[in-house]
Simulated assay, not measured.
Amino acid sequence: MTVETAPSEVLRALLSDASLEMTGKDVPALLDAHAGIPPGTRINVTFLESEDLETRREAARTAKALGFVPVPHISARRLRSEAALEELLAALQADGTGESVFVVAGDPSTPHGPYGDAMSVIGSGLLPAYGVRRVSIAGYPEGHPDIDDAELWRALEAKATELARHDLAGDVITQFGFDVDAVIGWIEQVRERGIGLPIRVGVAGPAGIRRLVRYASRFGIGTSAGTARKYGFSLTNLMGTAGPDRFLRELAGRYVPARHGAVRLHFYTFGGLRATSEWLTDFTEGVRR
């Protein structure tokens, strides 16, 4: 294998089994886009406060009916009681959509009920009791605006240990970002700490530059002028759209499977499910040529 062909081969491996994200209200968008999404794709269903349980259930059921693997989110701090968690898990189990879930602390600074973080949900023991077999947890290559790095690392290590204790498979889905240096450095730290879980690197699908910057600001993601230029857009010109082409090619050029372990991609569909899936199909076909 020559040096010239290595990045493309690695990029193809990274792109295989990429996952997508939708909200409960994106069912019409999923129906519109599904023909261009590979069967078996993992599709995360977010847990928005503005959406009720039935809306989330319908999204997960639709994803399954279309031949995808639904991954419903569980937002720990939005759960008002243990009964609410059990109601959610029971509903997912009844629908056949609850084998894989993504557990995250969630946005509220004050928990609405007894679960203050993802660890408390995982540690409850309720997930396997309701048929959950795989749990995704969150990773933050560029840190979190409200949590210091030491606490983030303690939490990640504790959750990985707790998943193993409950005999649950798992992976880590990272927040999106624009800085490959941060992503690669973070993955190396994960492995140095003995965490062997597969990692899905969060990637912003193609979207308007203004929207990308707005989301980055909301989640505490760095958008320095240098990083923005490297990614492919300018902070002085927010018109137009940007895709992750450069980011993915650089990531592939620096990803060493023997060193970094299992790594795949998770796309945040800020520009819409169809736009992201079509971009992903075109980009993947271009890499294969």
Rank of each mutant, 00 (worst) to 15 (best):
T227L: 11
P244L: 10
E192I: 11
K159N: 12
T281Y: 09
D179V: 13
G177L: 09
A105Q: 09
L163Q: 02
P111A: 10
A105W: 08
G131T: 05
I184A: 04
H260F: 10
R12L: 14
G243W: 01
V256A: 07
P70H: 02
L30H: 00
T223L: 08
T281F: 14
M119R: 11
A275I: 08
D146E: 15
G170E: 01
L126P: 05
T284R: 06
W153H: 12
P128Q: 04
L92M: 14
E86H: 14
G113W: 03
L88Y: 01
R165A: 11
V10E: 15
V121R: 03
E87W: 03
V104N: 04
F47R: 06
P128K: 09
P257Y: 01
V27T: 11
A204Y: 13
I37V: 11
A228S: 01
T23K: 15
E99Q: 15
Q93H: 10
R249Y: 05
R218I: 15
R193N: 04
G261Q: 07
S109W: 13
L251K: 07
L152C: 04
D146C: 15
T236N: 13
P145L: 09
D282R: 13
G271V: 02
E4G: 15
L168M: 12
D17M: 13
V172P: 01
T281R: 14
P111M: 07
S277N: 01
A118L: 10
G177F: 01
P145W: 06
L85D: 00
G116V: 09
S81E: 02
A33I: 03
A91H: 09
R259P: 08
F47Y: 08
F233K: 00
G98R: 07
A84G: 05
G253A: 14
W186A: 03
A155P: 05
E250K: 15
L30R: 10
F102V: 12
V287H: 00
A84Q: 03
T236H: 06
P7N: 08
R288I: 05
R200M: 13
G170Y: 02
P145Q: 04
H73K: 00
S75Q: 00
E188H: 14
S100C: 10
G220T: 01
R218H: 11
L197H: 12
R78I: 11
D26Y: 08
T174I: 10
Q93M: 01
E250L: 12
E21A: 15
F233Q: 00
P128L: 07
R12P: 15
I184C: 05
L248Y: 06
A207G: 01
L48Y: 03
R218A: 03
A33S: 02
